[in-house]
Nucleic acid binder design. Sequence first.
DNA 1: AAGCCCATGGAACACTGTTCCACAACTATG
DNA 2: CATAGTTGTGGAACAGTGTTCCATGGGCTT
Lengths: 239, 239
Amino acid sequence: MSRWNMHPQGSGKAVNIKRRGYSLSKERIVEAAVEILDEGGADGLTFRSLATRLATGPGALYWHIHSGDDLLVAACDAIIARTVEACEASAAEGMEPQEAIRRLSLATFDAMDAHPWVGSALTRAAGQLPVVRIVEGLGRQIKALGVPEEEHWMTTSALLSFILGVGGRNAANGRIARVEGLDRAEFLEATSAAWSQLDAELYPFVRSMAAPLRTHDDRMDFLAGIDLILQGIASARNR
Amino acid sequence: MSRWNMHPQGSGKAVNIKRRGYSLSKERIVEAAVEILDEGGADGLTFRSLATRLATGPGALYWHIHSGDDLLVAACDAIIARTVEACEASAAEGMEPQEAIRRLSLATFDAMDAHPWVGSALTRAAGQLPVVRIVEGLGRQIKALGVPEEEHWMTTSALLSFILGVGGRNAANGRIARVEGLDRAEFLEATSAAWSQLDAELYPFVRSMAAPLRTHDDRMDFLAGIDLILQGIASARNR
DNA sequence: AAGCCCATGGAACACTGTTCCACAACTATG
DNA sequence: CATAGTTGTGGAACAGTGTTCCATGGGCTT
């Protein structure tokens, strides 16, 4: 049931300083978790590594956090919350819905690019707060776009799936590259090399993508994908 | 480096019967892995459970499989290979590219629906054989659609991201439901209930989606999303 | 028949998430 | 001010994981 609790801070009462010079709190734990995730990816975050960084034992963490999933969702939400907030704060008054969707999507992409673990965490946090924040931002604009009500969910869901799909893919790439000890360029180079050696009869298209893969721009492709969907929405309206 | 090996069967020479009445082989191991995955989800597959089912020890498996990732990718490919193959076999001669894309996408969706673990495995197998199979199928049709060459990768990638996004999301839902001990209907009910209790000021849109969420059809929404992208592609061509 | 090598499967290692509990530190009460 | 109670702590222990290692067995070649 705790999975369905949408309010990550709990009752959030003030806590006093304890023996270690500062006390544990969900905020402080999540903050440390984000640092570890940024440094070592999702595989680097364990209750041991987190406890070590906070100079405590694993058991103490469970007083504030109910499970590993809970921790990951909270860390994810720490990033997404500030991303969505910053995006809304900088939104102009009379902005076109399409432009607002582009901005929110790009902001999410950039957040997942800066913190690759967010991509996979978001997928695993289906229905949880961080996803809710994004859906809310997208959905309002879909509504403003004049999409018929019975298509609100389908349309929003399509955008969300695309965004999470890209994020998940990038996260997976990052994870593999990290395990393999490669940086992004080397990883693309390796994939490209593997693709160019595929059977020419069976995989002509993928082979022909080996070269473009090396130089393509993830961010531009992402935005182009968003525009594809937005155009699809627009053309569905004008029929 | 083994990660880049695109040929899952290795040299694949015939193997003779050994002491257990039948010998281990990558095919047989993968077959057992798929059974375990179908029964218990991704969390149910461990080298121990697999070894037990095959009446051997974990060490023996490593002679045929190089790592857990390797195992998951091979299992995933076993499903995707036959899915793509069946789809191509049933494709009519003069079929419209759009229709071919719809069919391949739906076939992939249905495969991920029948084997929910495939959704997450596919994401983690970025650039590997199973993804290559899907990209090849999509890409050919994109080409047939007359999309300009410099947009081939972006367009194919957009479709792929959407498909993997949906699959990943469904897989995550399934995983959570399994952990929580819920079936699909109960899971949707729980999510819907949680959404309807969100702050009305902060999340009006998500709240309004609580009801539709309960009755929506994943498969129809998926297909509608594909059509959105296809329409986007078409309208980009006619400008 | 001897030797060889592929393949096997069990033990061991270093890790994981999670639970448990003795105990410390702060708060409220008599 | 002493005492009792509550909240929080952190280390130990449990059951499990992926992976490596290696003594041993089976079948093939010479």
